[in-house]
Design a protein around this nucleic acid. Structure first.
Length: 194
DNA sequence: TAGCTGATTGACT
DNA sequence: GTCAATCAGCTAA
């Protein structure tokens, strides 16, 4: 089961919210690792000062303006990778940063990649951590999320959770916009809600 | 060419 | 709570 292309061809905010509860699956390295998405952030077009659509090199901008449903992977601080899902139709820039997962398969493999205990929240409770846990690298930049080593499937259970909304984390521009979404009271969310 | 920054993390006080 | 790791790409000169 994989989310159809049409899922991504909608306004970025709606995609970010609806991605909560969905299942991200990686088959990198011959092992299946998967997690439930519990935290996302929306990044819009050039009108959003925090978005890479405005600040990153041409190659990244081409992805941003490309068709939704593809992965955008970038390196931050020289050492960590972050995974995004491109949203909107071709010509409409936007993406959703996957910030945290709750492991549902392959936790032992994740633990080996991360070097932490198999039952630790530190497995996947941050964008750099989940990328490492699922074996995501810059080679995944541009891959199709509807068919490939990286896929996102629909929720594996009814969506019976509350959604938290608040300002994005870790950025220095446009810090007040309420574009971060998370599953309320999930222990894998990267920052504790009050 | 030199200096600085960042959608983070982990180690340490 | 503070701070270093680490590097591509941007800026100033």
């Amino acid at each position: 089961m994989t989310l159809p292309r049409e899922f991504y061809l909608r306004p970025t905010r709606a995609v970010a919210r609806d991605l909560l509860g969905c299942i991200l699956v990686s088959t990198h390295g011959g092992a299946i690792t998967a997690g439930r998405i519990v935290e996302t952030e929306a990044y819009l077009g050039p009108e959003d000062p925090a978005s890479h659509a405005a600040t990153r090199p041409v190659a990244a901008r081409r992805l941003f303006y490309g068709e939704g449903g593809h992965a955008y992977v970038f390196r931050i601080y020289g050492l960590h990778q972050c995974l995004n899902a491109i949203t909107g139709r071709a010509g409409r820039p936007g993406c959703v940063l996957i910030r945290a997962l709750e492991p549902v398969a392959g936790a032992r493999v994740m633990a080996r990649r991360r070097g932490v205990a198999v039952d630790s929240v530190s497995l996947t409770n941050g964008p750099g951590k989940l990328a490492e846990a699922l074996g995501i690298t810059l080679r995944d930049n541009g891959v199709d999320l509807t068919r490939g080593p990286l896929e996102i499937g629909p929720p594996d259970a009814p969506r019976e959770f509350s959604v938290g909304v608040g300002p994005r984390v870790g950025i220095t521009r446009a810090t007040a916009l309420p574009l971060r979404f998370w599953i309320y009271r999930n222990r894998f969310v990267s920052r504790r809600e009050r």
